[in-house]
Design a protein around this nucleic acid. Sequence first.
DNA 1: TTGACAGATGACCGGTTAGTCAGTATTATA
DNA 2: TATAATACTGACTAACCGGTCATCTGTCAA
Lengths: 277, 277
Amino acid sequence: MKKQLIMEKAIELFAKQGFEATSVQQITEHCGISKGAFYLSFKSKDELIIEIIDHFMIQFTSEIDYLVRNAREGENLLYKFYYAIFDSFRKHSDFGKILIKEQSRSFNEDFIVKMRYYDRLMDKTILSMVERLYGDDKVKEIKYDLVFCIKGFMSMYSQLFLFYNIPLDLDLLSTSLVEKTNLLAKNATIPFISKGLIEVFEEPKLEDLTKEQILLTLDQEIEEMEESVEKESLLLLKQQLIEPTFGRAIIKGLLENIRNHPQTRWISYLLGSFFNI
Amino acid sequence: MKKQLIMEKAIELFAKQGFEATSVQQITEHCGISKGAFYLSFKSKDELIIEIIDHFMIQFTSEIDYLVRNAREGENLLYKFYYAIFDSFRKHSDFGKILIKEQSRSFNEDFIVKMRYYDRLMDKTILSMVERLYGDDKVKEIKYDLVFCIKGFMSMYSQLFLFYNIPLDLDLLSTSLVEKTNLLAKNATIPFISKGLIEVFEEPKLEDLTKEQILLTLDQEIEEMEESVEKESLLLLKQQLIEPTFGRAIIKGLLENIRNHPQTRWISYLLGSFFNI
DNA sequence: TTGACAGATGACCGGTTAGTCAGTATTATA
DNA sequence: TATAATACTGACTAACCGGTCATCTGTCAA
């Protein structure tokens, strides 16, 4: 698939030079294809960046969300969270650079909407982690501040190794941030970000997906797949969506079946979110 | 002065659309002048952004540095620091937006050098504040982490009100961050950023200004000024630079004389830094 | 009224861009 | 092998960019 190749090379160039400073010509030259061929795979340069963002953010968001949802009591969830975040940044450092460089760009409306959307998803995940870690009511007052601090830690420390290619000790980094986060969670008493404030910022509200929306995506996915365990799982999950019959264990198992395939990872995240598993 | 007008309108447009997405044509249209007139005030579009950056960062850097250097024992320096930072962001929110949007842009070498330079200056100031607040040796191990966390707080929370124009309670915000910072400073035990790591990042080293460099800037400034208390102060400070005769009190007084004038603010910062006052 | 001159103008230049499309090459099918 | 379908090419377009410069304008002193 040419699409794959174009995306890979484009990510390299965007990371090095930025989106606007990279021309379609340059991308095609690096791919060894013609300019026309580019427009067979993508309708426009904007569509390319949107697809890149989607590809990585879907992976990233669902991976972290899975981690939080499936954390066992007693294990160090926070440590795993930080480790996964930074490990992901390290593995996909070129994409990370794009994310930071273009994070608040205003050249394209769709782009901003996309970024805000994924940012909100991450907020939701971090918030549910905070509630799970420290007890919903215990940190009630400062939980939104905690989300902000955690995001602050993430962004500051990831800049460190995105822009200086030095092998960093991720274990130490995660341990250090766990301690810092715990200190804040257990001792901070003066919240700044209140529930009301959050609601103002989150206008318009991030609605939960309706059953119908998920069904739509699900049907699309099923159509495109060949016969396999994954397809069977999807069909069963579709049935469950229309008329609940299975218990949590079966649903969880079915989701597990489709979680590790790029094509179905997003569906797995959506369904997990809907069934609250 | 046309320069002033152009800079003002350019800042508005850069904040809204970004630097690259704003054309010289657009700027001149917003000013009601011709394209040619633009090039009478600035050699190029790049020179414009550099001048904007310098104009604000000199003001910002020297203001914060003065605050830290002249903090009295017992007063809440940290609170004043946070308050000043956020107040400045609020006052110059358009510039703040540019700073965040273009912070890691790679379109212009000079621009990146400039940004890194001011970033380092801020690091230095924050570090000296941390040492002053918590004792040089007490926080020896985690002081660099503290600098990072403080910067993380700054960037996360300033994004809040740069991109949502809601009147925020700066007093509460500052108080809240003071508590968080103190918690980390007094209880954190696991450092991640070591002195060695910092040195790698700061390559090449940020050298202290030599006497000669300051003298050069000083002479330039003196040349351009008309007779005034400020000019007299500059002349005396120049003498002091060549041959130290005055005590700290006099130097501090002289610096105070020139601190609040846009033209001499930078010199005041440089000299304060050199005399360590 | 004249002339000199700084300040301002906008048509213009060379260069680059995203995107198009008529035509060519490659592969699949019959 | 002939034909149809698909994949690919790169010259081309229209628009826009930063920057230049011959020309014009308004304001002075003489």
